[in-house]
Write a protein that binds this DNA or RNA. Structure first.
Lengths: 342, 342
DNA sequence: AGGGCATCTCAAAGCGCTTTGGCTTCTTTC
DNA sequence: GAAAGAAGCCAAAGCGCTTTGAGATGCCCT
């Protein structure tokens, strides 16, 4: 059943039927009702390919998925996706994933935009002065950044959590508990979120006259293994930190293992606060010692990104508003006062 | 630059240019070369929306993403996706994710197919007599199932790992080591993979005159927390199993925690073999006691699914061939002989 | 009564591609 | 040398929608 048939059936022109269906004002209410009814009764649904060719609108949002033999998609992605889905279903908004490896990323963005495959796209895990943001901004397609990038000479819409604030607060708590040597096990430090987190730790220490020693900082892709390595190398030194802020739960698994391997204990020898993106499959309260965390649901962020993307597509939102979400600091058993205040 | 302009420029008809570009035979080699050159030089790329309207081909593969407030996307998905991406990039094959909650799943499949949004789709995590498979089969769109479903009255193309064989072999090893009470901590037992795994354990026990006691079986969504619960309830009984086969690494994290909480040890009191889908962020060799595993890369499966999907789209593959991949059994420190052979 | 103005409807022109059917021109065959 | 066939190209008709520009129709006002 296509528009032609439907309009013939109604003895109206395609124009009128199309307008009635799409809510244009130049159609009488009666006609509109009649058309709507018939459409519903016959299960008429406009062919998206045709509509798309005519309007240039795709009805989909896009994401260029970084892939590559040496690239692993982060498990955070799956939770973010759950959130996107939460909004997208019920809005008949589909998501197009365009895999691209780093070398062809720009080409892929250009292709996706030039082909009008999607109406809007989002960018995640931005780095400093992220080129993708600049590119997409310049290409003029609606977009939202999940996270932030510094060093760009224009504003752009984003949603991010207060990484700096979170890690600042976590660190301040350590300081209040008497810790003077605080370590940071961070994610990949080319990413903005990691930069902000380090900044938060630094700032909190600084306001108590302390400093974040470079030798107390580690950063790497957030896997259990890297968490283990980082923790070991941090804890095996002479003036090891007595408290650690860690960027992910997966890394924290490694930290816990390292602490145990070194015959130390949490929180007796080392206090630990981890960031928690809220995964269903791994919860900080279920760690051997329940983990204190800075918590922010990445799933909620996904839903919000989808919502704003939809708003931008339909013109309800424009401008470059950035949204920064506060982060909860949840205290559990993994922290204690410093053994001896120096 | 569109076809019209390009053909005008070449002083050829659109027909000829189109044919030259798409490799039809009724174009002279010289003309083809000329066209190809011009196309490349001017960066001409056919508009996919137009092509799509004309041909009905979308150039994308689809996946109906189960979502819902109570539904969490499994982290396995992200690794599978990495695999899909491995193949898809370089083939300019995009993936369309259509989120749908359980109640609307069928509608969504119908919509996706009716709209010709994708040329093929895949289905994962099938259940017994999976209705999605029946639906998609009936709708006549090319598809591949990742996993298998039993109780369907037709054949269909799939790729799956030998879940039964894997868990059979793991269990047989336990039996050979003298274990007589083997427990199973399984994933959601409405899913086929879980059914196969249980079957594998049963069969191995049976061939030694043993039986898989229902009270030694647990099944739930594969999270750390559920692993913990399952292990505790299994190990706190009088005739607790001395060896456990577990369906996922995340669950195994919980098992390890439970064992420790009960002041037991691995492999002293309990031997453990886990299935490992090969996640970059969590590796069995890095468990407190390195975990023996049945190993199969879900990422590789993703790549293979994409490859076969592409083949089916282009008509290189048809029929209902099922592919079953063998699973490695990797022995590490988490298993030992039974303390006392009864 | 007739000009002016809404209001509602329509025919037709795109959107940019593929594909059908037909038309030349050239080669082959007997 | 005519018939047959092949090779190479083209005009035009879709694909199914949106949107432009214009044409009816009815109503009000002077």
């Amino acid at each position: 059943m296509n528009l032609k048939q439907l309009s013939k059936m109604l003895e109206l022109s395609q124009t009128t039927v199309s307008r009635a269906l799409n809510g244009y004002p130049e159609v009488s209410e009666e006609t509109r009702r009649r058309v709507m009814d018939a459409a519903k009764r016959h299960g008429y649904r406009p062919n998206p390919s045709a509509r798309r060719l005519a309007t240039g609108k795709a009805g989909m949002i896009g994401y260029v998925l970084p892939t590559g033999a040496a690239v692993d998609i982060d498990p955070h992605f799956v939770e973010f996706l759950s959130g996107l889905g939460d909004y997208a279903r019920g809005h008949e908004l589909d998501l197009v994933l365009s895999p691209a490896d780093a070398a062809e990323e720009e080409t892929t963005y250009r292709r996706v935009v030039a082909n009008k495959q999607v109406d809007a796209l989002y960018i995640s895990a931005p780095r400093r002065a992220d080129r993708r943001i600049a590119l997409v901004h310049q290409l003029g397609i609606p977009f939202i950044v999940h996270g932030r990038s510094e060093g760009l000479d224009f504003d752009y819409p984003f949603i991010d959590i207060d990484n700096e604030g979170a890690f600042h607060d976590a660190t301040r708590l350590f300081v209040q508990l008497g810790h003077r040597r605080v370590g940071l096990i961070n994610g990949d430090d080319t990413q903005t979120f990691a930069i902000f987190r380090e900044r938060g730790v630094s700032r909190a220490l600084a306001s108590s006259g302390l400093a974040l020693e470079p030798r107390h900082v580690r950063s790497a892709v957030m896997t259990e293994e890297n968490g283990y390595r980082a923790a070991r190398s941090l804890l095996e030194t002479a003036d090891a930190p007595t408290a650690i802020v860690c960027s992910s739960l997966h890394m924290s698994l490694g930290v816990v293992r390292a602490v145990r391997d070194l015959n130390l204990s949490i929180p007796g020898d080392v206090s630990l606060i981890s960031h928690d993106d809220v995964f269903p499959w791994l919860k900080p309260e279920n760690f051997p010692v329940p983990l204190s965390t800075t918590r922010s649901s990445i799933r909620a962020a996904g839903a919000r990104v989808a919502e704003r993307l939809a708003a931008r597509i339909s013109g309800l939102e424009d401008g470059a508003r950035g949204e920064v979400w506060p982060v909860d600091l949840v205290v559990r058993g993994s922290i204690a006062g410093a053994r001896q205040v120096v």
